[in-house]
Nucleic acid binder design. Sequence first.
RNA 1: GGCGACAUAGCCAAGUGGCAAGGCAGAGGACUGCAAAUCCUCCAUCCCCGGUUCGAAUCCGGGUGUCGCCUCCA
Length: 473
Amino acid sequence: MIRLYNTLTRKKEILQPVEEGKIGLYACGPTVYDYFHVGNARVFIFFDVLRRHLSYRGYKVTFVQNYTDIDDKMINRAAEMGITVDGLAKKFIRCYKEDAAALHIEPPDYEPRATEYIPQIIALIQKLIEKGHAYELDGDVYYDVESFPDYGKLSHQDLDELALGVRVELDERKRHPMDFVLWKKEKPGEPSWDSPWGKGRPGWHIECSAMSMHFLGETLDIHAGGRDLIFPHHENEIAQSEGTTGREFARYWLHAGYLNIDSQKMSKSLGNVFTVRGLRQKYDPRVLRFFMLSAHYRSPMNFSEELLQQAASALERLNNAVFNLQDCLKKSHDGPPDDEEKALLQFLEESREKFIQSMDDDINTADAIAALFELARSTNSYVNRSHSQSSEVVEKLVQFFQEADSILGFLDTRQPEELEGEIEELIARREEARREKNFALADAIRDQLRERGIILEDTPQGVRWKVVAEEPK
RNA sequence: GGCGACAUAGCCAAGUGGCAAGGCAGAGGACUGCAAAUCCUCCAUCCCCGGUUCGAAUCCGGGUGUCGCCUCCA
């Protein structure tokens, strides 16, 4: 039983899809005018974990995440760079995919670009005009918010109060200050498409209504995004979609919290924007992923390099636990589990239970990860015990970490690589030196290997080695 | 002005009525030729003041502080 916090009702609710066993999930993706930053990353990682967990729990998930490839930011950036809007989109979609892959974010089932769905967008606007929810003004089309009584239900705002808060200059032609644009009349030199109202381009909000319903039908199960999209973007999507269909647009609205930088809002003007692209040069992107999942997705979160270091140390502990198990497998026997191992298998089941329960409870990754740490302590003790381990048990333990990681996606569960012969020989020479109590030689070899990224650990069961990406600090 | 979030150890962070998870850092110990990895032990009157209750981090009221949204934004 999965429970999710629904922004619409401000409560955790039991997930009940429209169609049993299936989930239609739509998430607002990036505007592809630049590399995406760590704040975006938090949200995209959340979508990915949500999607993976729903699949893990047996739902057939259809996950759609769009690219916004036409808006003011796109047009301005393309002009600055002296390239076409389409060229800009192609470049940063490619970059998005690379960075997302580095974060172990799996590609959505569909990733439509807004400009590929202009006919659907136009059809939607036409329907809104027919139903009296939209009006044309000299080549622009606006949504008439007063025609939609539920306007404000997601952000829990009253239309009159919203109007009081309006800070930008009013367009006197609009019927209500909150009316928003569905179709924008062409400006010279900007991309445009033919429409019943003349040449122009879609407003920002309409694309998500058009594409989500195109792929997932009139009622989505889950619609997700960052907090800042609650108003106006998602509020407007509801007005557009429900105005058209007369049906509930999305059953569950999920919103991820902000990521602040050194306790301040991330912004270009403060110069504190960290892109994933930039960070990848310094940190394993899986550390970033682990960091993002170490807090609950709805909590506001702070980002700093110091915190990333903490995350790196913590993640290393989990990776070591898995590594130690894999190494132990080489030395294990084929016999049945003894009593200690039976107890450990029991604890494994409890850990799995706790992991699943935590994830089911509004995707509580922090709590789920705690279950992994607790299990890691037990498995570390186990692999260090004086008598040998049953391979059956060790395999089950490794498999569980892999299973958990099929959702979390930050562990390094690869099988240890084979060593080159030369290195194996060095390790053997060091073992010999140690036997002869020639510790100077033994330590020299160990240092030499360390420089080549191989760390030796002497355990009671013999030497153990691991490969690290680079020379550790 | 309207709406809302958050406050738990040096740091990060779960926990929404029944003895305060987990991680990072730190201290001590074990193991080791030395390391590394690992294990064990130690490290919190849960922002303040009231209230409800046998019992409150958790519920209610009142403060204080931080932050966010109200047509750029993940």
